[in-house]
Design a protein around this nucleic acid. Structure first.
Length: 413
RNA sequence: GUGGGUGUAGCUCAGUUGGUUAGAGCGUCAGGUUGUGAUCCUGAAUGUCGCGGGUUCAAAUCCCGUCACUCACCCCA
């Protein structure tokens, strides 16, 4: 029934078997790799004060102005479901002082109330890291290395890292001014909405998809030209270190980021399979103020749904990570059912995954169910076997079966 | 927020210029004798044709609205 009454709300989905196996693989391997880079997990609340996000992401960013799920609690406080993970982690660190590890990772749901499309859900999942510390090109390169390592651990091929700098906050005015001056002569070549953005957010013109805009942007010098020597040297150092580490990146002067907290290095990982939302990850160095404290750090967030799309395009799917099929126990008669219940428990305690039919159904029905679970081995024990103290062990693939005693059964499973 | 496409059984879809009890494949369930699955054979069940309204003697089919899915813009992971 195509009824809406059992569907989750728009832009949100149930993640369930068999697909869940791929999610688990992604999370498990991420944990392994994070451990090697000495990042530890943090789980922050999904609900935070709205101002935490508006301050750190920027009051005027689209995410804050249009996309947050915001609500008022009974005390009249403005709260929002987190649209990203960094702000909450920084708040945690700010509150923990010296005690907090400055290398943290997180994974969990994020919420943005946008129109869903390919690679964009309203509840989506991110895996991210934050390495807190003063700006240091080596730290940026290390985090990019971690990210590339992670992609490899998942078996993902064909991903590209695009890298750029957006410079220091002090550079920003110069960049905007320089960009405006460079574009102004071509202003009449731009469509109307782009002319609007020329005033409100010139940087955004750089990564516009509009052909007319791209034509103009191609004539404009790269943004680093407008930046201080310090900013340029920082980017060069990051690039040099990545080269040493033999990590392939593509420096792309048109890459910009939407959140206000970014400084210096920014990057994204793109993959051809993704449709219009072609970035499966976004990262960068940032500077965030929480209360009177300022935090410098570098990190990234990967969209798990997008990673999955890319993996599937690589032929990597949930089926490859499905749990091993259980052993199935078939009973006949009440006495055998009870005895088999004990057997079931014993096997489970020995580490064997197994399942059995708990109601008194026909052998045929039980076998059918065993087959459906994918069981390779089936133990059949009815009253006859019970009397003889044996078990019938059937190999489902071969279709053969033989009688065994308990010690041998244990041996075989 | 704006625009395009789609919405028929659990799933994938057919349904001709509006015309009688709406179909297929897969899946499900039951049989093919006594305690054996998958294969094979036989049979069965299942649809407010997304929802609401309108046009018509007659609507799954045409019109309007609405909801949802999907893709794109925008923005972002």
């Amino acid at each position: 029934m195509a009824s809406t009454q059992f569907q989750p709300i728009q832009g949100m989905s149930d993640i369930a078997p068999p697909d869940i196996a791929l999610w688990q693989m992604i999370e498990n391997r991420a944990r392994e790799i994070f451990a090697r880079y000495c990042f530890e997990e943090v789980r922050t609340p999904v609900l935070e004060k709205t101002e935490l996000f508006s301050h750190s992401l920027g009051e005027t960013t689209e995410v804050v102005t249009k996309e947050m799920y915001t609500l008022e609690d009974r005390g009249g406080r403005q709260l929002s479901l987190r649209p990203e993970g960094t702000a909450g982690v920084i708040r945690y660190i700010a509150g923990s002082g010296e005690a907090a590890n400055n290398r943290l990772f997180y994974l969990g749901s994020m919420f943005r109330c946008e129109r869903p499309q390919a690679g964009r859900k309203r509840q989506f999942h991110q895996i991210g890291v934050e390495a807190i510390g003063a700006p240091n090109p080596l730290a940026d390169a290390e985090v990019i290395a971690l990210q590339v390592h992670l992609l490899a651990a998942w078996g993902l091929e064909g991903a590209k890292v695009r890298l750029n700098t957006i410079g220091l906050p002090e550079d920003r005015a110069a960049v905007i001014k320089g960009l405006r001056e460079a574009i102004r002569p071509h202003l009449n070549e731009l469509p109307e909405d782009a002319q609007q953005r020329f005033k409100t957010n010139v940087l955004r013109l750089l990564d516009s998809k509009d052909e007319a805009v791209q034509k103009v942007v191609a004539k404009v010098p790269p943004v680093i030209e407008f930046m201080s020597a310090e900013s340029r040297a920082y980017l060069d150092a990051v690039i040099k270190t990545l080269k040493q580490l033999e990590i392939d990146v593509e420096v792309d002067a048109s890459l910009v980021r939407g959140l206000d907290y970014y400084v210096h290095t920014v990057w994204e990982v793109v993959h051809g399979s993704l449709g219009a939302q072609n970035a499966l990850s976004g990262g960068g160095r940032y500077r965030i103020e929480v209360g009177k404290k300022t935090f410098d750090g570098v990190g990234f967030a990967m969209g798990v749904e997008r990673v999955i799309t890319a993996l599937e395009a690589n032929g990597i799917g949930a089926a490859q990570f499905a749990p091993a099929p259980p052993v199935f126990i078939v009973s006949l008669g009440e006495a055998a059912l009870n005895e088999n219940l004990l057997l079931l428990q014993m096997l489970r305690q020995r580490g064997v995954a197994c399942e059995m039919e708990l109601s008194d159904r026909k052998v045929k029905a039980q076998m059918k169910r065993a087959n459906k679970t994918g069981a390779k081995q089936v133990i059949i024990r009815g009253d006859t076997e019970l009397e003889k103290g044996i078990f019938v062990l059937k190999d489902m693939k071969e279709g053969t079966q033989r009688e065994v005693e308990l010690p041998e059964l244990m041996e075989l499973l």
